[in-house]
Simulated assay, not measured.
Amino acid sequence: MMTFVILCFLAGIVVAIPFWLVAQRFGARGALRVMHGFDPAHAVPCVMEPVVLKGRLLPDLEGASNEGKVSEMDGAR
Rank of each mutant, 00 (worst) to 15 (best):
R25K: 10
K54W: 09
L21H: 08
F19E: 02
V44E: 11
R25S: 04
V22N: 02
L10M: 12
M1C: 00
A28K: 06
F38I: 10
A76C: 14
G27I: 03
G63A: 15
A16M: 01
V70Q: 04
L53I: 10
G75M: 15
A11F: 10
M2G: 14
V15E: 01
A76T: 15
P45W: 05
V34N: 05
N66Y: 08
G37M: 02
A16Y: 02
L61E: 13
V14N: 00
L21R: 12
S65A: 11
A28G: 01
V51H: 10
S65F: 08
M1S: 02
L57D: 13
F38T: 03
V51T: 13
K54A: 11
V44Y: 04
H42A: 10
A64K: 09
S71R: 08
R25P: 00
G37D: 10
G30D: 07
D60V: 09
D74T: 15
V70W: 10
V22D: 03
C8M: 10
H42C: 03
H36Q: 05
R33D: 13
V52Q: 11
G75N: 14
R29P: 08
A11K: 00
I6H: 05
R56Y: 15
A31T: 02
F38A: 05
G63M: 11
V51Y: 11
E62F: 14
E72F: 14
V52G: 08
C8K: 06
M1N: 00
R33F: 08
P45Q: 07
C46R: 12
D60G: 09
F26Y: 13
A76G: 13
F9C: 03
V34Q: 07
Q24T: 05
M2Q: 11
V34H: 09
V47Y: 13
